[in-house]
Nucleic acid binder design. Structure first.
Lengths: 190, 190
DNA sequence: CAACGATTGTGATCTAGATCACCTATACTA
DNA sequence: TAGTATAGGTGATCTAGATCACAATCGTTG
C-alpha cells in the first residue's frame, strides 16, 4: 500500500475527506526513510516536526543523569511520534526520538499542522480526536504503573502488542516497563 | 468572580470569542454545587458529562480488587475532570470522580461539547489545545513515575501544587504518588 | 573471517518501600 | 457530650525488584 493510502485511511478513521481535500493535506507530508538507530530528535535541539510511521518502529525516550533510559512510547505503523512538549511550545527537545528498526515515516511540520487545522475544520477535528485518544491511553499506562507489578505490566504489553516481542530488544521493553533488564529476563524463564 | 468570567477567561487563554459567541457557548454549561465526598461519577454507570471546576477540588481514581486506591488526577479551579474513556466512547465508567472538598463545577454534556466543536471552529481548536496540554502533562507524570523515587515525586508535587498540602488528606496524596500512606508519612518527619 | 559491540541469561546481594500492628488526635454525628 | 469514623504517626518485619558480577551468544562491519 502506498503512503497516501495509509495516511488517508488513517485520517478517515475519524473524518471523511474529498479527493482534492486529501491531496491538499497530503502535500504537507514529506516521506522519509531512516535506518535503524538514526535519530529524528535529539535533546537540546529545536523540534520542527512530528512523524507519522508508515513502517518500522520508533522510540521516544529520556536518558537520566545515571545513564538509565526510560521509554515513553514505541511508535509503529500508523502511530505518531514527536517531542510534543517542545513541538507545541517552540522549545528545545528534552526527549530522544530514534529508530528501533529501519523505518519509513511522514514528516509534518508544526506550522503546517496548524495551518491545516486553521484551514480545514475536519483536520482540527481529526487532531483533537487523535489527542483525546493519546490522553486516554496515557491514563491507562499511569494506572498500570500504579496498580500492577512488573510481571503483569510485561504480560499486558505482550498481550496487547505481541509484535514488540520480536521487533524490540528486551532491554528496551524493560526500559518501557520501568524494570531492570535482569528482572525482565527472569520473567521469561518461567 | 462569577462563573461566566472564570469560564470565559479560561477559554480565551487559547481562542478569542465575540460576546454573543461566548453567551452561546456558556448556555451549554450548567453550574452545580457539591459537598465534600459527593460522587459525580461512579464505576459501572454511564458517563454523560465532563466537569469544569470553579472552586474546590475533585479527584479521579480507581479502587482495585485489594481495595487500594490509585488517583489519576486532582482537579482544582479551572481544571477539567471526567472519565474521558467512558465519555468519549459512550461506555460505562471505570473511574470514580468525587469531591475532596465542597466544590462548584460547570457540567458540560458530551454531545453539547461535540455540538459546540462542530458549530464553532474556535471551540474545536480550544478543545484540541486542552487535550494536547493534558497529553503532555501525563507524559511528564509517566516519566516521573519511571525515573524518580517516591520522595522526590512527593517533593515535586508539593513544589508544583503547594495548595494540595492543606487541601487534600495525606493518604490521598500517597494514592496519587503511588506510595503507601506510611511511607509518605515517614518523608515528612525529616 | 576476525573482532568488537550488542543482546540475553543467571547467581548473589542489597534496599526502597510495602505490610502489619498499634497508638494518638481530631472531627463528625447521634 | 459521648462515641465512632477519619487522619496521621511510628516501630518491626518482609519482599519485589535493583544492582553487581560474570558468562555466553548473536550480528555487523572492516
Amino acid at each position: 500500500m502506498d503512503w497516501k493510502n495509509i495516511l488517508r485511511s488513517h485520517i478517515e478513521r475519524k473524518v471523511d475527506l474529498a479527493d482534492e481535500q486529501f491531496d491538499y493535506i497530503a502535500s504537507f507530508f514529506k516521506p522519509m526513510s531512516f535506518r535503524k538507530k538514526d535519530k529524528l530528535i535529539r535533546p537540546g535541539e529545536p523540534v520542527h516536526f512530528e512523524y507519522f510511521v508508515l513502517n518500522g518502529c520508533l522510540s521516544t525516550y529520556v536518558i537520566n543523569d545515571q545513564q538509565k533510559t526510560h521509554i515513553l512510547q514505541f511508535a509503529m505503523r500508523t502511530w505518531w511520534a514527536s517531542d510534543y512538549n517542545a513541538l507545541y511550545n517552540q522549545g528545545q527537545a528534552s526527549l530522544h526520538v530514534d529508530c528501533v528498526s529501519d523505518a519509513e515515516v511522514l514528516c509534518l511540520a508544526n506550522e503546517d499542522r496548524e495551518k491545516l487545522c486553521r484551514e480545514l475544520h475536519s483536520m482540527e477535528s481529526f487532531f483533537r480526536w487523535r489527542s483525546n485518544g493519546g490522553y486516554v491511553s496515557l491514563q491507562r499506562r499511569i494506572l498500570s504503573l500504579l496498580n500492577n507489578d512488573a510481571q503483569s505490566r510485561y504480560e499486558e504489553l505482550m498481550q496487547q502488542y505481541p509484535e514488540l516481542y520480536n521487533l524490540v530488544p528486551k532491554h528496551l521493553i524493560a526500559a518501557y516497563l520501568g524494570v531492570s533488564r535482569e528482572t525482565l529476563s527472569r520473567f521469561q524463564s518461567h
